[in-house]
Structures are given as structure tokens and as C-alpha cells.
Amino acid sequence: MVGLSQVLQYIMSGVTVGSIYAIVAIGFNIIYGTTGIINFAQGEFVMLGGMIAVTLASFMPLPVAVAGAVLLVMLCSGALEIFIFRRLRRPSLLQMIIITIGLSIVIQEVALHIWDEKVRSLPYFTGNECSSVRLLGAGLSPQVFWVLGTVGVTVTVLHGFLRYTIIGKAMRACASNVSAAQLAGINVANMRTLAFMVSGALGALGGCVISPITMTQYDMGTSLAIKGFAAAILGGLGNHMAAVPAGLLVGLAESVSVYFLPAAYKDAMAFAILLLVLFVRPHGLFGAPEVGTSSREF
């Protein structure tokens, strides 16, 4: 019989990684919404964020290092849009997929050459590996609350940004109808760059807060991208806020699966969920069926 505290432990660990999947999923949604690209290199932003922050943290205070990492990754992803995606003339869907996959590999390899294949991590934001907060009998690392808090605040701010600011509204306009947005005087190209920057910054921030718990390694991006994509699909592609519960759900399913299956199959579980969702409900749990079928064709 599983005790309450153990259940809570599983749930919290699921929610923690799940919130990172949610961050990645939102990143997917922002770029997809504004540009129609599924950015397979999304997980790489998370990796880069963690890696850069670890390096910076060795010679500056942690908050500055995190801010620096987020800023750098933001600039990098903006540069990707300006130097690569903006230059493509009427790219086909297949081309876009292939290019972002290529980018993901190149970024991984560059990271491997700059850093190395060692696992790194940021120091805990408060306390250390041993400190824990007791909650209903379960011992939780304080970093868990940092992760949940950061994700919560970020998502709220992002929601406010997209809903209430003029730039956020412009981004959403690009998502719903590009030519109408252009007619309304919105600079669609710049909005696309902005989407890449926001998405890169989000990923980097997620990479920083999760680093003390799950560690950072140059090849962590691919599986994060797939799990994040699973969350994005589960919530309905293009539906920013639904990605949050969906991400948590994927994280929970993964952590619960450890209880039934060998831990080595944990990742396989998350991917199986993705396949199941794709095959059964490609429009997501919360979306209407027509959202999935009328996927934008470029």
C-alpha cells in the first residue's frame, strides 16, 4: 500500500518536471502560432539556458547569471529567425521541419564543443541538496517551489502580455490571420522574430530553474522537445494556456509510470503518451476537433 506522503512525493516530482514540459510546450505554441513552424530545436533553448547559466554563475551572482543566460538565449533565438527563417522563400512544411531538426543537431554539437559531455548543474537557489521542506509528511526540495513559482509567474505574465499589451495582441493577430494582420499595419516579420525571442527566453528560464534538480547536459534537448510537443498537442496546438495542465499531465504520467514500469522505460512512457494522443485525439484534450484537422498548411 502506498502512503499518502509517497503519493504526494510522486505527484510533486511529476508536477515539477511537468511544469518544464509546459514551458517547452508554450514555447512551441508561441512560435507555431506566429510563424507556422514547429521548432524542433525548442529543447535546445532549455539546454542552452542551463549551460550558459552554469558557466556565468561561476563568476557572478546567481540571479545575474540566470538573467544573463535568458538574455543570451533570447538574442540567439532571435538571430536564428533573422538569419535563417526570414530568408527562406516560400518554404514547404517538410523543409521547415528538416531545417529546425538540423538546427537542433548543430546547436547540440556546438554545445558539446563549447562545454563537454559532462553533466552540470546550477547550485540550488535556496538551501542545498539536503535541505527539504516537509509537506504532509513528504520531503520536498525547496527548488521544487522555485520551479513551480517561476513557471506560475512566467505563465501569468505571458498571458497578460498576449492578452492586454498592444504587442501581445499584434502577435496573436499574426497567429490568427497573417494577411489581415499585415493589412492592419502589423510588421509580421518583426513579430516572428519576437516570437522566437520570447520562446527562447522562456525555454532558457525553464532550463535554469530545473537545472539543480534534473541537471543539464548537452543532449537533453531532444527528449525535452518531444515531451514538450506531447504537452502542446495534448493541450491543442496553438492554445497557449492549455499547455500548462497538459504539461503537468505528461509529467505526472511519467512519474507515476516509474511506479509500475522499470525506471529505464520512463521516457518510453512519455513518448507512448505522445503517440496515443496523436493517434486518438490530435486536436488535444481541450480543443475542438476542427482545430486539429484544419492545421495550417504552408
Binding site: 514547429i38 524542433f40 512544411l93 518531444i226 503517440l275 496523436l278 498548411e297
Partner: peptide, 11 residues
């Protein structure tokens, strides 16, 4: 289609 197929096969 497209992205969905790519991700499904990658998964």
C-alpha cells in the same frame, strides 16, 4: 500530416 507525422515517427 506534416509536423504531427514527424513527431510521431520521432517518438
Amino acid at each position: 500530416k506534416g509536423h504531427y507525422l514527424a513527431m510521431a515517427t520521432l517518438g
